[in-house]
Amino acid sequence: MKEISAKELEQKLAQGEKLNIIDVREVDEVTAGKIPEAIHIPLGLIEFKMNELDKSKEYIMVCRSGGRSGRATQFLESQGYKVVNMSGGMLDWEGKTE
């Protein structure tokens, strides 16, 4: 499973890279703040929403600490998607939130 650190992701966004970020936390967690560019799809809905994702794009999965996003990454990888897990999750995130 490919991984990216919160710092590396923050640097890519600061350089203006267009990234596809999916936050798999629950609604109440996202309400407390998410990465501005992130799309919110709770982990429990990934299986049902994956047909809305483009297999030609790479997605960066985010959660609170990296565990749930890791499970989402492994699942989507097994379905043929290009995915990267943000290790450390939002606990390690020091960038802007909305």
Rank of each mutant, 00 (worst) to 15 (best):
K2S: 08
K2F: 01
S5A: 05
A6H: 05
A6G: 07
E10V: 05
Q11W: 05
L13M: 08
E17P: 11
K18C: 05
N20D: 14
I22Q: 11
I22L: 11
R25P: 10
V27H: 08
E29T: 06
E29A: 09
V30E: 04
V30Y: 10
T31N: 13
A32H: 04
G33S: 03
G33I: 03
I35M: 11
E37F: 03
A38P: 11
H40Y: 01
I41S: 08
I41V: 15
P42Q: 13
L45R: 12
I46G: 10
E47V: 15
E47R: 13
M50P: 04
M50A: 08
L53V: 11
K55W: 01
S56V: 06
S56Q: 10
E58P: 03
Y59H: 12
C63M: 04
R64P: 00
S65D: 06
S65Q: 02
G67A: 09
G67E: 03
G67W: 00
G67S: 06
S69R: 00
S69E: 02
G70F: 06
R71V: 10
R71A: 13
L76W: 06
E77F: 02
E77W: 03
Q79H: 07
G80Q: 03
G80N: 08
G80T: 10
Y81M: 08
Y81R: 06
K82S: 07
V83N: 02
V84F: 02
M86V: 04
M86E: 01
M86N: 02
M86Q: 03
G88D: 00
G88S: 04
G89H: 00
L91D: 07
L91I: 09
L91Y: 02
E94F: 00
K96N: 14
